[in-house]
Design a protein around this nucleic acid. Structure first.
Lengths: 346, 346
DNA sequence: GTCTAGATTGTAACCGTTTTCAGATAGTGC
DNA sequence: GCACTATCTGAAAACGGTTACAATCTAGAC
């Protein structure tokens, strides 16, 4: 049998109510909707809360109200400047509107993502923030079955029936490639992130390819390399690409970290950037403007993107009508790593 | 009045129980302690769960069981490789033992940290992971009043009554400074992170200073600079230090990002590292070995540190007796950024 | 002074689990 | 075959809040 002392309640809202000489309903109201109780009552209750050091029990609140004021986010990894940025920004926004964030990671694994989503829903989140639109089939069903609002972030797909917010990666990549083409390059290589289960990466590759195709430029297979996540991987791929007998004069990269790898490897092999080789990145991480040569890249406002995702969900949950597909502008930032190709190789 | 259809329960454990023809108690047992129910029952229940797509409601579970299998972590910022690393590692460990992590940020503000702690406790976390041992007075009281287990991570203070896990920052910093002293440097500058509300930063400064003091070396005030968080801040400070008429021949830095700033600024001002200037970092971020010159620094196993913190709490919560103060070894990684001082300035 | 609308407060059911306790069932030694 | 355990299972009371509804109170309007 559970010990229940009917005389005195040691904690909880009932203790506060008892001390303030009011009902639990009033305490609850004072907490959630202060205007609904008279100033005098409110003062008494606040004083009792203070005196008892009362902290509301969120799980009970969630259970009773069916709302948690908590969002869940599933990112591939937190150990990546882009995501860390985004999450920080999202979290800051959410906390400013009284929401909390449950953060989990999927490690780029769709099954894990599904599992994490189940986890978060179980936890009672009011909505979910997902990366991209490349998900397990079961995930959509799960979201639909449980009527969980969600948004795909980091991509822009106005034609899809799911909400999303992000830059148009295809267009941005196209812009990046167009930049080196405009500089006069005709021999352009691509070093992209792994495209598998990563629609962002593949959209960028598509943009690069379209830019080349529009100018009738060839892309020999050996000039397109895909690399995993680390700088070491990027360096290795770059080394390979730079040592081809027939090497490109410019390399467009799927993200800045990859570009760093190309830059480092180029330096190591004695190529001068941008004299011998032009390099374009994508994301515009902090480092990119500090590097020497500084990196020409596509600037993507990650913080804004994720904050908008939060705004979308919070507003939807508040019953407001909001834009389902929001495009976030990118911009090309031209720095030192790009220049016209050497005359001899033009 | 709430609508309650007494005939059919649409969801929840009762729906599962009804479908399987068992009591809710059995379903709960099948979920939490499978061995406690007979295989046949378990099979029936599992099938019902599957058929209904049942997802347990964690808040209700927490409310009832008084345990959330969730830990809270409060870090200054997530947008910092060190913390991102640590959090990623902690999260991975926790998920491997069936725990979840509630992550919040304090922005280096003690009041915010206290508020976040309140928030997390309200959320029902079973324990708290904190950064360092520099907290608001109210925080300890809060933790004590609510009997919330916690651990300070990133520091090692065996003499304190609070659990902690981390490297001995003072000793590690001492080692870093000793390294350049051993190389023959006598004119050594310090560029540290802000010490206010940051015991890690101040322990490092203390270690640097002790190493200098032990060899009887002077530290003119203008040779010790404190900088905020960004690379830009570090560069500005470095520029100032390097342009002193009477400048040091070696600089020990409070962390790697600061060291990058010094390195970049040195290059910009035409100093050659390590010929004209030796630089030592602290943390050993990924970049440090890729940079040119690569950075001599103190390697700190961040991932292990945070995982240990998780282990400590999980074990404590399981009732196991565990070590309260755990020291994590650091190591000096000598790379290209340090060398004996130029003869002329020795 | 009575009546009514509106503002405030209280009562108690309910949110979806876990868990105690007791009852039912099956297995064992004699 | 019987009493006696050891195992399973079920009924129902919590857990700590929210909130629908009822009850009370207040202030004008007449």
């Amino acid at each position: 049998m559970r010990l229940t002392n009917t005389k005195s309640v040691k904690q909880g809202i009932r203790a506060v109510a008892a001390r303030a000489g009011v009902s639990t309903a009033s305490v609850s109201r004072a907490l959630n909707n202060p205007d609904a109780v008279s100033p005098s009552l409110r003062a008494r209750i606040e004083q009792a809360i203070e005196a008892l050091g009362y902290i509301p029990h969120a799980p009970a609140r969630i259970l009773s109200s069916r709302r948690s004021r908590t969002l869940g986010a599933i990112v591939p990894t937190i150990d990546n400047t882009m995501f860390a940025r985004g999450i920080a920004s999202l979290q800051q926004y959410l906390s400013s509107v009284g929401y909390m964030l449950f953060l989990t990671t999927s490690g780029y694994d769709l099954d894990v993502e599904l599992q994490q989503a189940r986890n978060l829903i179980s936890r009672g989140v009011d909505g979910l923030v997902l990366r991209g639109d490349c998900h397990h089939d079961g995930l959509r069903k799960l979201l639909a079955d449980n009527a969980v609002p969600f948004i795909n972030v980091g991509i822009y797909q106005p034609d899809r029936p799911y909400p999303c917010v992000g830059t148009n990666n295809e267009a941005a990549a196209h812009r990046a490639a167009a930049h080196v083409i405009e500089l006069g390059h005709r021999r352009i290589g691509i070093v992209s992130a792994l495209q598998r289960n990563n629609d962002r990466a593949s959209a960028r590759v598509a943009g690069f390819r379209r830019a080349l195709a529009e100018r009738g430029l060839e892309l020999p297979p050996q000039w397109h390399v895909e690399v995993p996540y680390t700088l070491d991987d990027a360096r290795e791929a770059a080394r390979h690409l730079l040592n081809l007998k027939d090497r490109p004069t410019a390399v467009v990269c799927g993200n800045d970290v990859i570009a760093y790898g190309v830059l480092l490897e180029a330096e190591r092999d004695g190529f001068s950037v941008p004299r011998d080789l032009s390099v374009v990145g994508f994301d515009d991480l902090d480092w990119s403007r500090h590097l020497r040569p500084s990196l020409t890249t596509i600037h993507v406002p990650t913080g804004e993107t994720w904050q908008r995702a939060g705004e979308y969900l919070v507003r939807s949950l508040a019953g407001e009508q909001t834009i389902m597909h929001r495009e976030i502008d990118f911009s090309l930032v031209v720095r030192e790593s790009t220049a016209p190709p050497p005359k001899s190789l033009k």
